Amino acid sequence: MLKSMTGYGSASLQQGEKTYTIEVKSVNHRYCDVNVKVPPRYAFLENEIKKLIKERFSRGRFDIYLNIDELAENSKRISFDRGLVARYLKELRELGADLGLDPQIDFLSLVKLPEVIKVEQGPEDQEEMIKSVQKALELSLHQLEEMRQKEGTSLHQEILSILSRIQETVVRIAERARVTPVEYKKILRERIQDLLEGTLEVDETRLAQEIVIFAERIDVTEELARLGSHIAQFHKLMESREPVGKKLDFLIQEMNREVNTIGSKANDALISQEVIEIKADLERMREQVQNIE
């Protein structure tokens, strides 16, 4: 079944002292383009996320947002720069002596001085974090896959409907192509008779030669056969479980090429009108295929 390239999924997962929240959005793209936004201190997770996406999908633009919340207060380490405190105290006492003042220095005032207190993030277990992100990402991608499959089913039905119309139009073109030489023979005979004004008989041999030349020039049998083959192949690809978006797009180009040739060779107003209808349907189908993985 077909899969759309448009989807969305999000999930939150609590692992130990952290909560991982991942949001994934995907839209159509010619290749697999992955854009990951993570907090700067967790930049090491970016490549892991990109790797997982590219292993799982062949096409689409993916925007992934990762947020990590710390749940425990002990995830941060607090320390004091004792050497700096000693230098502050020494300088304050010397300043007091120079000014003839007795500095009243209390502890809280001292620790409020710049850079005395240091708050540092505790060490990270990168391996465990990668495993946690993989789990959260898997939950998000499950939602995204469901949406892509649901929209893919809708696209499948729409494309089948368009293909059915194209096949019906091809049948009408084939039927019309069979009678066109006969009609041309009749019209040509009438024109010759009008020109001769009944003074001479129509040369049946020459007339037959002209009809054969005309029939060969407007013959679209091969084009119709190739077009039918492309349609059959299109149906087969649509049932594949593999990503087929690029192949379907290529087949539409090939069908367009055959239809253009039919239009240029047919030399018939009715066939030309049918060709216009097919080209319009192929354009509608191409727009749908652009969103298939």
Rank of each mutant, 00 (worst) to 15 (best):
V259H: 06
Q253L: 08
R241C: 01
A280W: 06
E223H: 03
S240N: 03
S229W: 00
R172A: 14
Q14L: 04
L113M: 13
E287A: 05
L113Q: 08
L227G: 01
G100A: 03
K18P: 05
S272I: 04
T205S: 08
V36E: 10
D69E: 15
L207R: 06
Q233F: 12
R217C: 00
V34M: 08
I130W: 01
D102F: 00
T221H: 02
E283T: 05
S58T: 12
E287D: 06
S132Y: 01
S272A: 14
F44S: 09
N291H: 03
F107N: 03
G245I: 04
T153E: 13
L195R: 14
T169E: 07
Q157I: 03
T261R: 04
I292M: 09
E168H: 05
E204W: 03
G263E: 07
E222C: 05
Q104T: 10
I105C: 08
R82S: 12
F214S: 06
F214Q: 06
R206W: 04
S140N: 07
A266V: 04
Y8N: 11
A225M: 07
V170E: 09
T205C: 00
S272H: 03
V220M: 04
V182Q: 12
T221N: 10
K246R: 15
I173L: 00
Q121H: 11
G228A: 00
E55M: 03
Y42F: 15
R191K: 15
A11C: 09
E115V: 01
L224H: 02
E293I: 13
R176E: 12
L188M: 14
A269C: 05
G7K: 04
N256C: 09
L45I: 07
L160I: 08
H230P: 01
R82G: 08
S79D: 11
I173T: 04
K185C: 02
A225S: 12
Y88I: 08
L163W: 01
